[in-house]
Design a binder for these strands. Structure first.
Lengths: 184, 184
DNA sequence: GTCTATATGGAGATAGAC
DNA sequence: GTCTATCTCCATATAGAC
């Protein structure tokens, strides 16, 4: 990060990467200062609410990214099968083929869940809903579409847990293959 | 917990519940002291290595439980289908139908992963292996059995993440239904 | 907007009496 | 084995100069 004239919008993605790597509690202000290149003064200038506000900004940033790149296309595309296919590729890219974990999922299992419960719930609920809409358009009945969508979202998260636990990204890629096949 | 003459074996399950609820970093010695009813003196008497040793003991305890109740029957049972069925019920019970999360999975996504990487890896690798053995005995080819087992273990973890995120245990129960159907 | 210096609290861990 | 008192360290957050 630049030493002068930083912008909040430039900092948030860096924060996202930090929270992903260190978790909420592990992301100390010392680490955040190092990785962003900003002193405490600047950090509290952009985020008067401290770490909590930083995490909120990160969750919002993630939500926007998913909304634009994944949820919106799933809901609105004229070619739902293509949107589902694109979702699988975008997810695979986003998680670096299983090398990165999902901050939102990690927060959900963490002690901080209650503090960010709203954002966490929205992220997953929106994902499930958007995917279910696309699945309905490919011909599934409403109930079955919701069920399939819920299964897919859960499986992605589980694959991230297992890939991390076994230290083997291939676990994630295999799971994405299965998910894609089942959705289309 | 009793105020006098505690035993290590009695404390470990309590610690497991604490780590499950608070995570590793959230489980401060203050919380641990409150919930176990033991002072710092007693805690360090039983666990000279401090929190790290407590967590190691918890992971070992969990591993033993799964080995006895799940992995061993899966590997050795004469009726593999029944063992798989029993696994699903035991897992559902163990996680309180989705109200509890998996400490090992939570650790895998947490900042503490590296510190306990060995125990985390073993837990999931053994689970996958044992389930794959049972699946082979029910007639699946080796590769397909491993694939199915990996999928099931990942799906269980994902269902726990999603159930927690959506604050809806039913998500977990639906997932377990799907998993059981797919395995048998 | 950025920095350094500092306040304050709580963390993990230890000492030593009982 | 258990307790309380205490040590040390590092966390978040603040203050105020530049």
């Amino acid at each position: 990060m630049a030493k002068t004239n930083a912008e909040r919008a430039d900092i948030v993605p860096v924060l996202a990467e930090i929270f992903r790597e260190y978790g909420f509690e592990g992301a100390s202000l010392a680490v955040i200062g190092d990785k962003t290149g900003l002193g405490r003064g600047s950090l509290y200038h952009f985020f008067p609410g401290g770490k909590e506000e930083m995490a909120t900004a990160v969750l919002h940033h993630i939500d926007t990214w998913f909304e634009d790149r994944i949820y919106h296309p799933l809901r609105e595309s004229d070619d739902p099968a293509a949107a589902i296919n694109a979702m699988c590729r975008a997810v695979s890219d986003y998680f670096h083929s299983g090398c990165r974990i999902c901050v939102v999922g990690a927060f959900a299992l963490d002690n901080v869940r209650d503090r960010f419960a709203g954002a966490i719930l929205d992220y997953f609920a929106e994902w499930r809903n958007a995917l279910a809409i696309a699945l309905q358009k490919t011909g599934h009945a409403r109930d079955q579409a919701i069920d399939l969508a819920e299964e897919a979202v859960a499986n992605i998260q589980g694959a991230l847990v297992l890939a991390r636990a076994l230290d083997d990204p291939a676990v994630f890629e295999r799971a994405m293959q299965r998910i894609e096949k089942r959705l289309l």
